Amino acid sequence: MSLILQIETATTSCSVALARVGEVLDFKEINARNIHAEVITLYINELLNNTGISYNDLDAIAVSSGPGSYTGLRIGVSTAKGLCFALDKPLIAVETLEAMADGVINNPGFFADDKTLLCPMIDARRMEVYTALFDTAGNRVRETAADIIDENSFADYLQHHKIIFFGDGAEKCKSVLSNNPNAAFSDDFTNSAIYLTEKAAQKFADGVFEDVAYYEPYYLKDFIAGKKAL
């Protein structure tokens, strides 16, 4: 039995969900920039109130671990760690790109042959994205990387596979990749805490938990602060 609070703040989506034994009970989310710190704890309180569940009823806290927005990840992980410390609950980390792939695979309307690959993309800077490749069973085909996208990106894979690109980094890649007949783009994907459900439930069952005191998000790249406008 597992009752897990799930937190997703790695992208523009600020999302929380409650899942019991791998089934989502309820969720609350908004897709907007620079709002995560303002609403995350409010959303968690509302979610628990709506479901009649208390903080002490929770069995674990799961958080989207990155890569993604530096600030968003700090907010999500800090919130998750604070709850784990206060409630003495275990912390579960789920890589963001893996969760995004699960979100597509588990969509009831998703149909694809076994040669199709999934490419979640998270916006980084300019033409750079955080990305990886997965098959339709959720197996990783290409490791997570920070890539600068050009017309030759994924060329070897696109020769033999249809690739579905999705996520908030995919839109800016259309101009250089959409001419390839094997490149498809999903325009209606929004990241969500509900996509953590499968991996979080499995990690809870296997007892795969993070060290709350020392856990840090998966930034992939060092944070680079921009100059403040005068």
Rank of each mutant, 00 (worst) to 15 (best):
I148G: 00
R125D: 02
F204P: 00
L87G: 00
G169W: 04
T12I: 06
E8R: 08
T51I: 11
K172W: 12
G72E: 09
L5V: 06
E38A: 06
S153Y: 15
N139Y: 13
Q202R: 14
N139H: 15
K28M: 02
Q159L: 14
N106S: 13
F110C: 05
T79K: 03
D113S: 07
V77M: 12
S78W: 09
L3M: 12
T11V: 04
G207M: 04
A200N: 07
P108M: 02
I7K: 00
H161A: 10
F110G: 03
T144W: 02
P108I: 04
T51C: 15
N182S: 06
K228F: 06
A213S: 14
D168M: 00
F134T: 01
F185T: 09
A193C: 10
R33L: 05
I44C: 05
R125P: 01
Y214K: 10
Q159A: 15
P217C: 06
C14W: 06
F223W: 13
G167Q: 12
E171S: 04
A124M: 01
F165Y: 14
T116Q: 07
P181S: 03
G22A: 10
D102Q: 14
P67H: 08
G72I: 10
K115V: 11
F166C: 03
F185K: 10
G76N: 14
A37P: 11
T96Y: 04
I44F: 06
N182D: 00
F85Q: 13
N191H: 10
D135A: 02
A137M: 11
S78N: 09
S78F: 07
D188E: 10
D113K: 01
A99N: 08
N107T: 08
G22T: 04
R142W: 13
Q6F: 04
L133T: 00
F110W: 09
A201E: 07
T190G: 00
A93V: 00
F27T: 01
I75T: 11
I61K: 05
G109R: 08
A32C: 03
N180K: 13
R142F: 14
E95D: 14
L133W: 12
N180E: 13
H36Q: 15
T12E: 15
A137N: 14
V141G: 02
L18R: 03
S65F: 08
E143H: 08
V129Y: 05
L18C: 03
T9D: 03
I163H: 10
A19W: 04
A183G: 05
S192M: 10
Y219N: 04
N180V: 13
L47D: 07
G22D: 04
F166E: 10
L177E: 13
H161S: 14
D147C: 01
F185S: 07
H161F: 12
C173S: 15
L118Y: 12
H161P: 09
S65I: 03
E198K: 15
L42I: 14
I163V: 15
V176K: 14
C84S: 10
P217V: 10
L97V: 07
A201H: 12
A19L: 02
